[in-house]
Design a protein around this nucleic acid. Structure first.
Ligand SMILES: [Mn+2]
Ligand SMILES: [Mn+2]
Ligand SMILES: [Zn+2]
Ligand SMILES: [Zn+2]
Lengths: 162, 162
DNA sequence: ATAAAAATGAAAATCAAATTCATTTAAAAT
DNA sequence: ATTTTAAATGAATTTGATTTTCATTTTTAT
């Protein structure tokens, strides 16, 4: 049966296991972004650095953080996500309709995404050749690269066979 | 002075000149999509196939079509855009915040986009190698390719030097 | 502890896009 | 050409994600 779930609702397929951050490290992240350390912000970051889904919507985060901070609202979540994005600390990906997903950046930079249009699963992949090619294109045109996005939309193998 | 205009507000830089369609051809497009031919729809398609900007928002289209059909509203525009998208006749691109841009597809398929984050200019480019690589990645994983998106975000040369 | 600056959360505002529904129109069938 | 029927239109409303406002609270530097 076809489900057509929103993208980012299924367990991710990652390139490699994510790095977990402890509370001290999460606070460092906030410091590095020039943000004050609050319990709500640490809680949001803790959610972002825990699996098995590392691509989370604001709603995902809100629901998780609400368990410890029942009064937190979207305002706090979206405000922090915006600032972390501006500080390049998280990546915002908006594949298809609906809400954006956010993920904490790790060292293994610049990976790309495959999304199954049917089950909403996100599969990460890396390709040094594409990365270099894009950098070269930008360099040739004398532009300054700010960000590169590569997205493939598919029907994954399990969805293909109904 | 930095302007930070929304993406898709400046004259496009195209790979090659666009094919223009006459009224007869535009009607053919509608027929091919299984849609009834109405004056409003032909007018929307006419706007989509005219430059110098080929990446247009629903608002852009509305304003243009309103000149001949003062009573047309967003409902008609969005409804048609949705159906043309589903029929793969137009491409919807959503780069950054704000509204999506839509462009009529041409024969020279599968091109990619560079957007200047400052002036909002869209520059098209093609890269057969990336295209093939993405197809190969999908094939290897035994998925069915539905769509591929490659976007580069930059500061263009004129914006770089203030 | 105090003061200044920043963050929070409830509520409202914004904005793009989709939907509803009464009316009109296109095109297929007579 | 007229009738029929299914589809399209447009005004208004709704939806859903994200942002903003503002009174109150919290953080951090002194
Ligand atoms: Mn990812
Ligand atoms: Mn284009
Ligand atoms: Zn799937
Ligand atoms: Zn520019």
């Amino acid at each position: 049966m076809l489900k057509n779930l929103p993208i980012g609702t299924q367990t991710d397929v990652l390139i490699e296991p994510r790095t977990f951050f402890n509370e001290k490290e999460l606070k460092e992240i906030l410091k590095k972004c020039g943000l004050k350390i609050t319990k709500q912000r640490v809680a949001v970051l803790k959610v972002l650095s825990s699996g098995p889904r590392y691509h989370k919507t604001a709603k995902d985060i809100l629901e998780e953080v609400k368990k410890n901070f029942p009064n937190i609202g979207f305002a706090t979540i979206y405000r922090l996500l915006k600032r972390l994005s501006q500080a390049q600390m998280i990546l915002e990906i908006s594949m298809g309709a609906g809400s954006s997903c956010y993920e904490l950046k790790t060292k293994q930079q610049s990976h790309y995404h495959i999304a199954c249009l049917n089950c909403g699963k996100i599969i990460e992949f890396k390709n040094k050749m594409i990365e270099t090619t894009l950098e070269k294109i930008v360099l040739e045109k004398n532009y300054t690269l700010k960000n590169q996005v590569v997205e493939i939309y598919v029907n994954c193998d399990s969805c293909k066979n109904q």
